[in-house]
Write a protein that binds this DNA or RNA. Structure first.
Lengths: 338, 338
DNA sequence: TTCACAATTGTGACCGTGCACATGCCGAGC
DNA sequence: GCTCGGCATGTGCACGGTCACAATTGTGAA
C-alpha cells in the first residue's frame, strides 16, 4: 500500500475509505454499528482505522447530526458535598456517552451566573445540570430564556425538573435528635439564604422546633465555611444561653467546635453539636461529629439520569423516590449537663 | 419584515444575513470582529442577531477552523487540594476562551486511566491537563501515543511540561520544623506511592532527616484519607517510640489526631503533628494544625497558562518561578515533653 | 474626469460526517 | 425466466461556519 496519506491533516473518514477500498458511507456505517455490513468489510475498515490511528471528528459529527452530545455543568464547588456530586455526575454522563463541560461560579452575583450560563450555552450543550443551587440561578435561567432542558440537584418548589432530596427531613431528624436528648435552647447555623438547600434545612429545623413546641431562636446566616462557624461561635458563646447547635454543614460545625474549645467548654457535656453532610473527615473531628449523611454520589447519578430522560424526549420523567438522608449519631451530642 | 424564519432549526449565519440584507460572510466578519466593517452594517447585523436570539454553532465553527478550543482535564478529585486547583483551571481556561471537558478517574488502574484519556481524545481536545498526577497516567499518555500537548500539575523529573511546585522544599520545611523543636523520632505518613506529589514529599522528608543526621524510620504508605490516618495512628501508638509525625496531607493528620485522642495523649505535648495542604478546615482542628500551605488556585492558573503557551505553538514555554509552599505554624507542634 | 488604492462586501469552495436515496446483488416464489 | 424484496454498498448533498479570492464601492490626488 503506497497510497499516501494526508500530510498535516488528521485522517478523515474518506482517507479510511480510500485505503480500505470502500465508500466513505461504508466507513460511516462501521462507525455507527449499522446492522447490514458484511463482516469481512467491517474487519477491513476497522483494520485501516487502526493503522491510521483514525479518530472520528467530533465537531463534524455534532454538526451533521445536529447534536453535540454535551452536557453543561454549572457548579459552585464550595464544599465537599457538591464536589463529590459533581464527580459523580461527570462519571454518569460519561458512561452514557455524553461529554461534560463545567463552568464554575466564582461569585454568586447575577452577572457571574449569567456569564457562566452564557459560556455553557455558547457551546451548544444539550442540557444543563445545576449543582450550585442558588435561587438566583433560576432567575438567570429564566431571564436568558434558556431553551435546553436543565436539572438542579437540590429540591425546590418552583420547578419540576429538580431532584427530590429530602433536605427538610434530614434537618428535622437532626433537630429532633437534639430535642430528644433534652435540649430546649438550640441555635441553628444556617447556610447562605440564597442557597436552596440552606433554606430547606433551615425550614426543616424551624418546622421541627415548632412542632415539638420548643421556643425557637433566630437562625444565624453563615457562608458554609469553618471560619464563619468559628467567628459565629466566638460571638454566640459570650452569652451562654443555649446548650446545643445544629449547623447546616460539617465545616461550620467544625469551626464552632473550635470556638467552644477556646472558651474551655467540655464537648459534648457543655454543648451538643450536629452537622450536616457527613464529610469523610467528620468521623475524625474531636469529638466525632454527629451529622446527617447524604449520598452525594447517588445524587449526582440521579441528576444525570433525570436530565438524560429529559433529553431523550418522549419518555416522561420517572421521578424516583426521594433520597432520605440518614442521621449518624457520634460523640458530639449528649444530654444537657444541668 | 415578514421574511419567515426557519421552523425547527436554530437560526444560522445565513438566516441572519438574509434578514439583515447582507451576505453570510459579512455576518461572519461581524462575529469575528473583522476590522473593515462599516459601523452601520455592523449595527444592523447585531440587531438582527439579537432579534433572532442567534448563537453561533460551535460544532460548525470547530469544524471549519479545525480547532475545537477545548481542553481536556483529567482529574482524580480526591481531596480538597486538587478540587480547588481544578476549579481554578476551569476558570482560567474559560477566561482564555477555551472550554474544559473533565474526565474523572474512578480508580487508579491503567485500564481506567486509558478509558478516561480515550474519552478526552474522542472529543478532539487541543490539550490535556492532568490533575491526577499519578505515575501511571504518564505511562498511559505515552502508550496511547497522545499527540496533543499536555501539562501536569505536579512536578516530576520525567517530563518537561510539568509545573514546578516545590513539594520537596515544603516537606523539608515541615520536617525541619519538627527537628528544630527537638524531635528525634519522627514518623512520616506518606501518600500512595504512585502519586508523584506523595513521592516528592516523602523524598523531602527523607532528605531533610538525612541531612540533619536524624535517624529515619520507614515511612508509612497511606491513601490520603482521614480514615487511614486514624487506623495508622491506632497501630503506631501501641509502641510509643516516636514524638512527632509528619503527614503528607491534612486529612491523614486529622485521622491521626483522632487516634491520639483515643489513646489519651495530650496534644501537642505528647505528640507533635504536621500536615500538608492547609485545607480551610486545618485552622479549626483541635489543636489547630501546623501545616504547609500551597496556593492551589495559583497552581491551577499556571497550569492552564503553561498549556496555552504550548498550544499557541511558536512561543517557547516560559517557566515561571516554582511555587514555594509556606509552613504555617499553629498549635499542633511543640517541643517533646521529656 | 480619471486613476490608483484602500475599504467594504460578496461568491463559492471546503471542513468531516450523517442522511436520504439510488444502485447492484442474490435468493425465493411464481 | 421473471419479479420481488432484503441486504450491502455507493452517490450526492446538507449541516453552519471560515477561508481565499473576486467584485464593488469610496476616496484623494493628478
Amino acid at each position: 500500500m503506497t497510497l499516501d496519506l494526508p500530510k498535516g491533516r488528521a485522517p478523515s473518514i474518506r482517507d479510511v475509505a480510500r485505503l480500505a477500498g470502500v465508500s466513505h458511507q461504508t466507513v460511516s456505517r462501521v462507525l455507527n454499528d449499522h446492522p447490514s455490513i458484511r463482516e469481512s468489510t467491517k474487519a477491513k475498515v476497522l483494520q485501516v482505522m487502526e493503522d491510521l490511528q483514525y479518530r472520528p471528528n467530533r465537531a463534524a459529527r455534532a454538526l451533521s447530526r445536529g447534536r453535540s452530545r454535551t452536557i453543561g455543568l454549572l457548579s459552585a464547588e464550595i464544599a465537599y458535598g457538591p464536589a463529590s456530586s459533581i464527580a459523580a455526575s461527570q462519571d454518569a454522563a460519561q458512561e452514557a456517552g455524553y461529554y461534560v463541560n463545567t463552568a464554575n461560579l466564582t461569585s454568586v452575583d447575577t452577572e457571574s451566573i449569567e456569564a457562566a450560563l452564557e459560556h455553557l450555552m455558547n457551546q451548544s450543550v444539550e442540557g444543563i445540570v445545576v449543582i450550585a443551587p442558588q435561587v438566583r440561578v433560576f432567575d438567570a435561567l429564566e431571564q436568558l430564556a434558556i431553551d435546553v432542558p436543565f436539572v438542579t440537584l437540590q429540591s425546590t418548589g418552583r420547578l419540576d425538573n429538580s431532584l427530590s432530596v429530602d433536605q427538610m427531613t434530614g434537618a428535622r431528624q437532626a433537630t429532633r435528635h437534639l430535642i430528644d436528648l433534652g435540649h430546649r435552647s438550640i441555635y441553628h447555623l444556617a447556610g447562605p439564604q440564597d442557597w436552596i438547600e440552606a433554606e430547606a434545612r433551615m425550614r426543616g429545623f424551624l418546622d421541627e422546633m415548632w412542632e415539638m413546641d420548643v421556643p425557637t431562636m433566630a437562625p444565624i446566616l453563615g457562608d458554609w465555611t469553618a471560619d464563619f462557624g468559628y467567628r459565629a461561635g466566638r460571638e454566640l458563646l459570650r452569652r451562654r444561653d443555649f446548650t446545643a447547635i445544629f449547623a447546616s454543614n460539617d465545616q461550620m460545625a467544625l469551626g464552632f467546635m473550635h470556638a467552644c474549645r477556646e472558651e474551655g467548654l467540655n464537648l459534648p457535656r457543655d454543648m451538643s453539636i450536629v452537622g450536616y453532610d457527613d464529610i469523610p473527615e467528620a468521623a475524625h473531628f474531636w469529638p466525632p461529629l454527629t451529622t446527617v449523611r447524604q449520598d452525594f454520589a447517588e445524587l449526582g447519578h440521579r441528576c444525570i439520569a433525570l436530565l438524560l430522560s429529559n433529553l431523550s424526549g418522549g419518555v416522561p420523567i420517572e421521578r424516583s423516590d426521594p433520597i432520605i438522608p440518614e442521621l449518624i449519631v457520634r460523640g458530639s451530642t449528649a444530654p444537657p449537663a444541668f
